[in-house]
Design a protein around this nucleic acid. Structure first.
Lengths: 214, 214
DNA sequence: TTCCTGTGAGCGAGCGCTCATTCATATAGC
DNA sequence: GCTATATGAATGAGCGCTCGCTCACAGGAA
């Protein structure tokens, strides 16, 4: 697993790379909360600066534009989701139970990161197109993790058989059903506990494969 | 089925109600395309006015604020989705095939209205909260249509049995898998034709119930 | 002195929205 | 039919203000 730092394409005025990293993290940590609370467009660069404890000038030492801040926010959200998913997968065995376990962990990641995932849905369109593309690549890479996991599981469990094409779609479905908890929280959250939601959806997802039993 | 006109809560300066209806439709027709192309915040009221063929002053004869325009846009989108779904349901028979037919029609609505559904996901948060609430009510009412349809079908087909709670979740799942085609179009659209997507997802959705066969 | 990070007053483009005014049409009086 | 009056829809220059971003300068470490 290569550790790409996708944020180093963001231009800065400051020479010391370590300082750049630290300051950027401070700034994005402040920005993400503002973006969640008020949205990207209604958050001003001054608000970001003061929430991070800097002057407006300093922010522009580390980012060339407000959009760059949003991009780094999106990157770090996806990085954290990916971290959670890969962690869950690395410690999973094979077969049906492994799949259930991975789904559970992933759904808990979605639960924990609700606001952040929602933010990506709402504000990706506000990014310049070259970075919009990057964000979609991230989304796709995460989906790809589930494709691999499903393939691995299908190999080690005779009960699970899927055509190549269905396998991809199944992965997308799992990802989206996790997201569904975040963007229908206003309803689902009042009617199910997250544990129940996971239980019910896991049954349904495993049901996708039940019909294909050898 | 009562025909509510939810837009009459939007204040206007103009007396003639029929004219208000016509002008508002002209304005929102222009606005929705701009919102889709550039987003709500990057669209200016002047652009809306000129795209609709009016002066900026006229727009404010018919709407009190830019947010009011967005609200009416969201209302009309949901109204059209609901029209499509109810039409599909009214001509459906009972049983398994009816469900497949309804899913097919609904997914085609999502396909046709991709851009519009995406817009709602992205811009609902830009609405004042009392109208945000209305939009979520619309979303929930549409989901409710599927709950009813599933309940009706479960009654007329012994093969389909669902607990009350699972039935609600199944309805949400169907709605979201339709939306998934819209917000993953950038990927799915290049790998599946809509007809194939419908076929595959229908199998999966019907599979939700297969495990519960009496 | 030199180099680099940090500052915040200031810039000017652009925003949503207003309101004094114009103009087309409907009505009334004769 | 003709003119005078009233109505209300349509106009667009302009207001007040906010925003993202810049840049001349300060501070301090080497």
């Amino acid at each position: 697993m290569e550790e790409l730092n996708r944020t180093k394409d963001i231009p800065t005025q400051v020479k010391d790379p370590e300082l750049v990293d630290r300051r950027r993290r401070q700034i994005t940590d402040a920005a993400v909360q503002l973006f969640i609370d008020k949205g990207f467009h209604k958050t001003t660069t001054r608000q970001i600066a003061s929430a991070a404890g800097f002057s407006i000038g300093s922010v522009y030492e580390y980012f060339a534009s407000k959009e760059d801040i949003l991009y780094m926010v999106c990157e770090s959200i996806h990085a954290e989701v990916e971290r959670g998913v890969t962690a869950a997968m690395s410690q999973a065995a094979g077969g049906r139970d492994a799949l259930a376990k991975i789904i559970q962990e992933y759904f808990m990641v979605c639960h924990r990161m609700s606001d952040f995932i929602l933010l990506i849905y709402q504000e990706t369109q506000s990014l310049p197109s070259q970075w919009q593309k990057r964000v979609l690549e991230n989304e796709l890479r995460i989906t790809g993790l589930f494709v691999e996991a499903l393939a691995g599981i299908a190999n080690s469990d005779d009960q699970i058989k899927l055509a190549e094409s269905n396998l991809e779609l199944a992965a997308h479905n799992i990802v989206i059903l996790g997201h569904m908890w975040t963007f229908r929280r206003w309803y689902l959250g009042h009617h199910y506990r997250i544990e129940d939601y996971i239980q019910l959806q896991t049954d349904i997802i495993l049901g996708m494969f039940a019909g294909k039993t050898k």
